[in-house]
Design a protein around this nucleic acid. Structure first.
Lengths: 145, 145
DNA sequence: AAATCAATTTAGCCTTGACTAACTTTAAAA
DNA sequence: TTTTAAAGTTAGTCAAGGCTAAATTGATTT
């Protein structure tokens, strides 16, 4: 147990920032698999030109990122062809989409303007723990039901 | 007005991600000025060994970051001496601390465990707009009063 | 005063995530 | 079928933010 017996003991700062850095490392991956899933749904396939347009980056940047996602097992791709999600990628995309919606709906339920909520949700979603996500879901749900 | 006359028009995705990238670029700066202010308050000065310990990074990393903060006008430093905040740095630190507290108190008011709230607040705070921050502050305040 | 130890700095390396410019491939039009 | 335009790729650059290892400085002991 170490020095953690005090009620509400503050976590070690270094732990907090270590977790923050881990979250950062996952962010781009999560945004990409989510966007790829959206594109496949909306347009039937995910072309890198569409990814570049939606993220507001160049085609070269998309290319680099897709290679990394492939290396990490989230997508498959062949030269000059569109990008596909692996099972793992699809799973992650589904999880991220749910989380995004919960955060967005929570902000709107709280009274935040929907446009602002879109901006904020995109940043916040990657840093919300399971526990906090449950609270968010419960709050928005309670307001509806 | 362009194509923004529809109620609740979704913002362009590229804008959302551009703002996200801007927020990222500010994160480390904000965390450092806040931590430097804390150290000066708690210990009278901000030594890089203390910064390294609290962030959970090496002294070399702290050194790099401090140089960047100095370049950007948030701190001053002299070799082998502790770090000082400029007026701009102090201002930013105060703003960040207030924001951090609002986010943390909001999460706790919502029912999130204080330890989890510490972790989540550190990630969330950098992505909360002024508008959302006001909603957070109002929510926690309303519960108290 | 010298030795030692802790703190700081420097140098060099790595990955991520961005860019531009130039090149190749694919698909569509002439 | 050839040409052209759009899409995708490759190569090279850069800054941020991490690291290790080695050198230096400052402060404390002996």
């Amino acid at each position: 147990m170490g020095d953690r017996s005090v009620p509400h003991a503050r976590p070690n700062k270094a732990e907090v920032f270590a977790r923050l850095r881990e979250a950062h490392a996952r962010e781009v991956t999560e945004d990409y698999v989510e966007m790829i899933a959206d594109l496949i749904e909306e347009e039937g396939e995910a072309r890198s030109v569409a990814l570049a347009e939606r993220f507001g980056v160049t085609a070269a940047t998309v290319n680099n990122t897709i290679k990394r996602l492939e290396r990490d097992g989230f997508v498959t791709s062949r030269p000059y062809r569109s990008v596909f999600l692996t099972d793992e990628g699809r799973e992650l995309a589904a999880k991220c989409r749910k989380r995004h919606e919960i955060v967005y709906n929570f902000l709107v339920a709280l009274g935040v303007d929907p446009t602002t909520a879109e901006f904020d949700a995109e940043g916040i979603e990657h840093h919300v723990s399971e526990e906090t996500l449950r609270m968010f879901a419960g709050f928005a749900g309670g307001k509806r039901g």
